[in-house]
């Protein structure tokens, strides 16, 4: 199921304050979209009861080599996480 991975993306390496659901260990890392999940309200606004934009949410698959570099336990293992569109930018394959 859904084994065809989509385009390459990089998680933006920003560090804004507040309620952010992009784990910091993935910021700046490159991965491939595993599947789009549809639009969801932006939790960074929801958390403060602000009027929340809808943001497309994606499941992004990273290799452990990309996430942990040479410290990776097994470089070919993977990590999937859900990342909102405003945290992603297109990039080239590594």
């Amino acid at each position: 199921m859904a084994e065809t991975l989509h385009n390459w993306v990089r998680v933006r390496a920003m560090m804004p304050p507040g309620h952010v659901r992009t784990p910091s260990y993935l910021r700046g890392k490159r991965g491939q979209v595993e599947r789009p999940l549809g639009p969801f309200h932006n939790p960074e606004q929801l958390a403060y009861r602000l009027k929340a934009d809808q943001q497309p949410l994606y499941r992004v698959r990273f290799s452990m080599a990309e996430v942990w570099g040479k410290d990776a336990e097994n470089p070919g293992d993977t990590l999937d996480a859900e990342i909102y569109a405003h945290w992603l930018e297109p990039c080239d394959a590594p």
């Binding site: 659901r21 992009t22 784990p23 999940l37 969801f40 939790p43 949410l57 698959r61 097994n74 293992d77 993977t78 990590l79 999937d80 996480a81 859900e82 990342i83 909102y84």
Partner: peptide, 9 residues
């Protein structure tokens, strides 16, 4: 091994 981090919805 595929780890799934439930980061959002």
């Amino acid at each position: 091994v595929r780890v799934h981090d439930s980061t959002a919805d």
